[in-house]
Write a protein that binds this DNA or RNA. Structure first.
Ligand code: FES
Ligand code: FES
Lengths: 158, 158
DNA sequence: TCTAATCTTGACTTAAAAGTAAGGTATCGC
DNA sequence: GCGATACCTTACTTTTAAGTCAAGATTAGA
């Protein structure tokens, strides 16, 4: 249960775009790569993924670059992470079937709900955070997040 | 942000041990491998990790096998997952430094708190679940988990 | 004691993720 | 139009995680 490199760097680049957005500017791949200390090729790949998902907008040609497709306050982290983590993780019971054709826990299973709920918990937490909330100072961001964790909305209770 | 194969299979094996525990029995590697549809070699590796961390007890020789080191009701999932996910994930800013020596976000950083809090949220959720809670029917387990997600204890508020 | 069952351990192989390279296409300014 | 800038896309290489193998060590029971 850890964050992958792609998720991490993708999110960072997105944050850089959010910062630039405030000043009405867009960023090129080489700018992004310099800002985050990754190769331009890698930045390109990340941006391609994000743009395919409609999170960022790209402009070609000289004076081109990337910018957020929507205001930073409307981009929630759960969306970002889901896009960056690749495949939609097919139904769990098919991905982790061991050497067998199907999951050995047929029908009644205590594992499945744990995994599903766990992802739900993470998703809920991430859904409460927008890009714009991450632009302040570290202390402010930290404070804001603590609050969110406390005010949890409890969606799917009856 | 997804669960790894090792975490998944390790947890499943542990659950099988918890079931066997109820009947005062221990399980051998070949039994575990058959129950979970993985190779005995793989089961052996997982058990070694879990035993090294003190979560399971092993008995060698004929009539040997594995059993839980403590009652299922005292084993919390956060511990299990942390053990199975390998390295303690050194300070984040060192793991994801791109091509540079250190993290480019020096000092004031909006990313770090997100990652740290996120792991905290997951850990809190997992800490509320014990192995014994996962032994019931799928419907029961699901119901129990929903409750936990709602009653969240809010540890680190002031 | 001897043997069969069983765990232990490190090295090896394979599969997946991450990152890189290169050629292609669109846009701008002259 | 032409060249420079910058994104687009696919294929490849490297790195890391996952899984396997094989030789060694320990115990119960005949
Ligand atoms: S994890 Fe697939 S049925 Fe249990
Ligand atoms: S992630 Fe390391 S300083 Fe921001």
């Amino acid at each position: 249960m850890k964050i992958s490199a792609q998720e991490e760097y993708g999110l960072r680049c997105l944050l850089q775009l959010a910062r630039a957005e405030g000043m009405g500017e867009s960023l090129t791949l080489s700018q992004l790569s310099r800002l985050e200390g990754i190769s331009t090729a890698n930045a390109g790949k990340l941006m391609w993924i994000l743009s395919k998902a409609g999170l960022v907008q790209s402009t070609r040609g000289t004076k081109g670059g990337y910018s957020l497709a929507r205001p930073a306050s409307e981009i929630r982290l759960n969306r970002v992470i889901r896009v960056l983590e690749g495949e939609p993780a097919e139904s769990h019971c098919k991905s982790y079937a061991g050497v067998l054709d199907a999951c050995v826990h047929t029908g009644d299973c205590g594992i499945r709900p744990v995994i599903v709920e766990l992802h739900q918990i993470v998703d809920n937490a991430l859904a409460d955070i927008t890009l714009s909330q991450l632009l302040g100072t570290e202390a402010n961001v930290d404070a804001a997040l603590h609050q969110i964790q406390g005010i949890r909305p409890k969606d799917n209770r009856v």
